[in-house]
Design a protein around this nucleic acid. Structure first.
Lengths: 255, 255
DNA sequence: TGCATTGCGAGAGCAGTGCTCTCAACTTCA
DNA sequence: TGAAGTTGAGAGCACTGCTCTCGCAATGCA
């Protein structure tokens, strides 16, 4: 159970330790606020998240919560990090359940984990990948870490596959990777210590955005009400094609 | 009573014609409200759209606008239809500027039109393709028509290409289209009088969701601040790969 | 142990929101 | 001209984010 999964609160029990009883009480209240915020977020959506309502649930007057959370934005940021980490955890867990050498299977597992979480937590997914909350800009410094866990996991799969000699798009058209991209791709390659060459890296980026495009369409209701009855199968097919797009081998037989 | 929603209001001057002067004045006020709403939407985003602010700009007290618009949702629906139609118009225009037989080129033109509009109108794009506005559900009856214009245009390209014998994915893996999908795909094929077979239709669906996935990532700021400096080139590459995914031929030489 | 410091919750208050209702003025039409 | 319908203004309710002050109580130090 993700009790207090805030950046500082999570390893708090081990790392710094709640020194004074006052700090313990404070940390507990903050984690209560986050828990209630998460419930409100899941129930009513991000834009309807109300500090006053959280205060009521906390059994406290509204001004009191401002002792613990600077403002509504701050709470949204905490919930953003919280959600990113929960998604990242589930993606990691799903990937660990697949043999490391089954690169296609790892990709499919990652995709399914994202979709499962998104369908289970549509409001929190919307907070991460939907339209930005009005007037709210996530502070890059605190969110980029948790926010990049999925793409890092994906790139790791591609890189592992490439190093194993199992990532290629031979026999297909190779749209030229424009000169303007080589610099950016080189930066990415260096930042994450990847070996994947330009064209495969660009294709991996497409697989990444496409994965979230498919999930977002489903979560945000862009498919009509009844256009697709078996959306899991549709998504499964899309994942298989996306693996092909990225140059991954087909997944091993399903367990 | 808000009879004249956008769809009917736009060609109103020609179609039904504002009969009485009173109705003329009313239609004019409604269209003023929509225009102001569109400005507010573009400027401050959907969730910050305030009927009171629109009323102020209209030079009228807040309760007066409720004579013309049932509630905030109603205005959002009008703006939704408005935006869908503007996007649809631009996509149609872009497609018309490409030779009909250049199927790859038509696909690229469609994709670029979507991206251009989205980057120019991020708040309105977010209203259409971002997280659903809290508590707001678009009324299917009024929005599905305008809301499907882009996907219909895309499917038309694929169908045209297929009928011209230029849509195929030979030589690539063919992830099996699961049995659960054949029924849905057949329904789609019948509804839009398409000839495209199952696997290509499913791939077209992926190209569709992936296109919007790429655009959404860019508009919603999922790429970091400085990860990609030349996003137009990245998008161009993605479009080329997506055309390949859908089985389209490469676009003819750019004009 | 006694005291100053600090943290905290309550409450009032401001400015904004969506929305409803009533009332008076105005326009339209018979 | 008079009845009917339409409109805008204004007051009001319940809600929001957020600020400020005040008094209580826990805390930490001498």
């Amino acid at each position: 159970m993700p009790e207090d999964s805030i950046d500082s609160a999570r390893p708090a029990a081990a790392a710094s330790g709640p020194r004074t009883p006052r700090e313990r009480a404070r940390a507990r209240t903050v984690s209560d606020i986050i828990r209630l915020g998460r419930e409100h977020l899941a129930l009513h959506g991000a834009a309807a998240l109300s500090l006053r309502a959280v205060a009521r649930d906390l059994g406290v007057v509204s001004s009191a919560v401002y002792r613990y959370v600077e403002n509504r934005e701050e709470l949204l940021t905490l919930l953003l990090i919280d959600a990113y980490n929960e998604l990242g955890d589930e993606v990691d867990d799903a990937g660990a359940a697949v043999p490391a050498a089954d690169f296609g299977g790892r990709f499919v597992a990652l995709g399914r984990a994202v979709r499962d979480w998104a369908l289970r937590e549509p409001s929190r997914y919307a907070l991460l990948f939907g339209s930005p909350v009005p007037g709210y800009r996530a502070p890059a410094g605190r969110t980029t870490g948790p926010g990049t866990r999925v793409v890092v996991a994906l790139m790791t799969i591609l890189d592992d596959a490439f190093r194993a000699g199992q990532l290629s798009v031979e026999g297909r058209r190779h749209p030229a990777v424009a000169a303007g991209l080589t610099g950016d791709l080189a930066t990415i390659r260096a930042e994450f210590a990847l070996a994947v060459p330009d064209d495969l890296l660009a294709r991996g980026t497409l697989a990444w955005t496409s994965l979230f495009g498919a999930v977002s369409f489903e979560v945000f209701g862009q498919y009509g009400e009844e256009t697709f009855t078996d959306r899991a199968e549709l998504f499964g097919h899309h994942l298989a094609v996306l693996a092909e797009v990225a140059g991954l081998p087909a997944a091993d037989a399903a367990p």
